[in-house]
Design a protein around this nucleic acid. Structure first.
Lengths: 124, 124
DNA sequence: CCAATATTGATAATTAATTATCATTTATCA
DNA sequence: TGATAAATGATAATTAATTATCAATATTGG
């Protein structure tokens, strides 16, 4: 990643503009508004490089093999995953501690919480 | 699933004996102690049938495309996933409510929590 | 016990996300 | 501006879990 290109600018700007993790397809579709003939291979290459460079983070969901990406450096948070449209949303306010205890002997390093249900648009 | 076979008995007994979700490979290895030349295809077929029959449930983990299975009907609980050995463990005691609020307009239907870290065996 | 057929085991096929390839285009710097 | 090499876009290849295929085996009801 040695040169500035409009493709990479558009991809990073897309991620910065949305306050939720985006799939590679979502990135492609949004960034194509700025760079119409952007290809999916460039999206994959760019997100890999941004991840390596520490600028974005990959988000994985249980049962979904595709990756989503969000800007790195946000405070601790979790996500809401709409079962209808498949979009992922950011949720505020996890204290960092959950009222679930791990038994003696286990060393917890992190926790992930995923809420599932319907987003406002799909609920109506 | 119309006939009783030693293969399916061994597979279900394996899942019942462990109090944690098992991958198809773990099921295969454990059940082979009872049915030595058990094949992986039979494991896949059996778990699919047990899921359809409502006897077991598939568990998915973020970033791991392979499925794990546990006996259905347990009370609400979550899991601990060891990053070293990859084994999944059952955790007691989720109140069902977390101290994370979803914004207005979202309808939460369920939540999943995954703890990651080291299990007792891998910690030492 | 026997016939009918469900099940098994070995392995080929599938599937979907991601990565590699390569000719063409483009950013950068002298 | 022009040379150089990085980046792009189209698409082929890869990868790993799961499913399908099919001949051989085993269960079950009579």
């Amino acid at each position: 990643m040695e040169r500035k290109t409009k493709q990479r600018n558009a991809i990073l700007a897309t991620l910065a503009a949305e306050n939720r993790p985006l799939s590679t397809q979502e990135i492609l579709e949004n960034a194509q508004k700025k760079v119409p003939n952007l290809g999916i291979a460039t999206v994959y290459r760019a997100v890999r490089e941004f991840v390596d460079a520490g600028q974005i983070t990959a988000i994985n969901l249980p049962g979904d093999p595709s990756q989503r990406y969000e800007i790195k450096g946000k405070h601790h948070h979790h996500h809401f995953w709409c079962r209808a449209c498949g979009k992922l949303f950011e949720l505020e306010g996890c204290s960092g501690k959950l009222n679930i205890k791990t038994p003696k002997g286990f060393k917890t390093e992190l926790h992930e919480v995923i809420f599932r249900g319907l987003c406002p648009k799909c609920k109506t």
